[in-house]
């Protein structure tokens, strides 16, 4: 099946500026692979792949590989528009299956010095600097919903990338903005 145009987010692609900023990156490109051969496939394709699960690693000029397990990887490409989407989902290679992260999850990027303090109102994992270093990922819960939180650098900023279920994105943004109130 061929590809088609895609640039819609339930959050409208908005940016909420402030001491802590929250930006909707949902329409940025991302894809995923899962399977025993996924790692070697990515390395062959020239990606820098993290050594361990729950780590995120940047590949210069392309984006990030986020490892969610030994065999599951998400490719995040913040500079590339999600111009296309595919529903062709059969194996791309022997035991490597494409994932659906472009349409299953929304992507929010949180910046600002006090972002860990804000997240402490929503999340039971310690996301402070000394406990959650750059390059780490937490698959956890935020305000009672599942959430993947990755800490990495982006355009010179220390950021949290948050991935939440597409159907819960509006809820997630509401609680984030509410938690952010006291810091703005």
């Amino acid at each position: 099946m061929t590809e088609t145009m895609f640039n819609v987010s339930p959050l409208g692609g908005q940016v909420y500026d402030g001491a802590i900023s929250i930006a909707d990156y949902t329409t940025r490109h991302r894809s995923g692979l899962r399977g025993a051969q996924a790692r070697s496939l990515l390395i062959e394709a020239g990606w820098s792949v993290p050594a361990h699960p729950n780590e995120i690693l940047q590949t210069e000029d392309r984006g990030f590989v986020m490892a969610l397990s030994q065999r599951e990887f998400w490719l995040l490409e913040p500079t590339r528009d999600a111009l296309s989407i595919s529903i062709s989902t059969t194996a791309v290679d022997k035991d490597v299956y494409p994932l659906f992260c472009q349409s299953s999850h929304c992507w929010l990027v949180v910046t600002g010095e006090l972002k860990s303090s804000m997240m402490a109102k929503l999340c039971g994992v310690d996301l402070s600097d000394n406990a959650f270093a750059t390059g780490t990922v937490a698959q956890t819960q935020m305000a009672l919903i599942n959430c993947i939180i990755a800490r990495h650098e982006m355009a010179g900023h220390d950021v949290f990338s948050l991935f939440v279920d597409h159907s819960l994105a509006e809820y997630a943004l509401e609680v984030l903005l509410d938690a952010r109130d006291e810091f703005v």
Binding site: P10, L144, D165, S167, L168, E170, A179
Partner: peptide
């Protein structure tokens, strides 16, 4: 405290 009531919305909501 602040109470969390997750609501799932269809994209067509």
């Amino acid at each position: 405290g602040r109470r969390f009531h997750p609501i799932r919305r269809s994209p067509l909501h």
